[in-house]
């Protein structure tokens, strides 16, 4: 079933077209990778879907409902979760409190003034942390965590509103190969278990080729290719603007293919 439908989406910054009329669909249970050189418009596209940026034109429909023009918090209420390129968590709250906060907000309790929040949604929060493998760190301040762990906390927060669509902006940036695989395997499992869809941007081709069901390639704000790993890898234009000769990653790819 088509979950997300993007049509003729564009965004200009002072006359410069950062995103120039792109179209794509995302289906339930699918991991769709958005790839392309830095500055191709990936983050801009992402932020338009998440509501952080307002599209200059076009439409983004989630199950038939228009997202363009809605604020991030309203899009969140429509069960869209997201993570950021540079992980955004609440540094002065503990890991557990971060996830509790997301749950409190999801349940409309964010303005409750007098009840102690300590026990509220504690079990649910711990369950989410267990899903991302962070329950051991529940009581630690978020500011003390290793970067990969912060990303997991962010993922747990993104799952708090029981999303149908999860947006992940460079989820494995700054992670080692092993951590990358762990996180993406986890994501893949969650997609299956929760019947949700994931749209993600990524530079690590091993991650993209191993986990994405489909990929779309942006260059200078335009969509230049769409298809599966095999198709994208051999696409001459993609090779030219993005992969280069492929020498620096073909080794990893060979390894990946053995594993998959």
């Amino acid at each position: 079933m088509t979950l997300l439908q993007v049509r003729d989406l564009n965004k200009s910054f002072g006359g410069v077209r950062a995103v120039d009329g792109i179209n794509f669909d995302l289906h339930e249970g699918e991991l769709l990778a958005l790839i392309g050189p830095n500055g191709a418009g990936k983050s801009t596209t992402f932020n338009m879907v998440g509501g952080q940026l307002k599209a200059s034109g076009g439409s983004i429909q989630l199950l038939g409902q228009e997202l363009v023009g809605r604020r991030p918090r309203d899009i969140c209420r429509m069960q869209v979760g997201r993570t950021f390129q540079i992980a955004e968590t609440f540094a002065s709250l503990t890991v557990l409190e971060n996830v509790q906060m997301a749950l409190l907000s999801h349940h409309g309790k964010g303005f409750s003034l007098f009840r102690s929040a300590r026990k509220m949604y504690r079990d649910e929060a711990l369950a989410l942390l267990a899903q991302v493998g962070m329950e051991r760190h529940a009581e630690r301040p978020c500011s003390e965590l290793a970067y990969g762990d912060v990303k997991r906390v962010e993922l747990a927060m993104g799952l708090a509103n029981d999303p149908k669509l999860l947006l992940m902006d460079e989820p494995t940036a700054g992670m080692g190969p092993e951590e990358r695989n762990d996180l993406m395997a986890l994501t893949k499992r969650l997609v299956v278990e929760r019947k949700m869809a994931v749209l993600f941007t990524e530079h690590s081709m091993d991650v993209v080729f191993a986990y994405a069901d489909r990929m779309i390639v942006l260059a200078r704000g335009r969509l230049i290719a769409e298809g599966d790993a095999q198709y994208i890898r051999n696409h001459p234009k993609v090779q030219q603007v993005y992969f280069g000769t492929g020498k620096t990653f073909e080794h990893e790819m060979a390894q990946q293919q053995v594993q998959v």
Binding site: R71, G81, M101, H106, A160
Partner: peptide, 14 residues
């Protein structure tokens, strides 16, 4: 939360 990261707070519906 709003102080630490307005971006994140907004994205979780605050």
């Amino acid at each position: 939360a709003a102080r630490d990261s307005a971006l994140r707070a907004d994205a979780i519906g605050i």
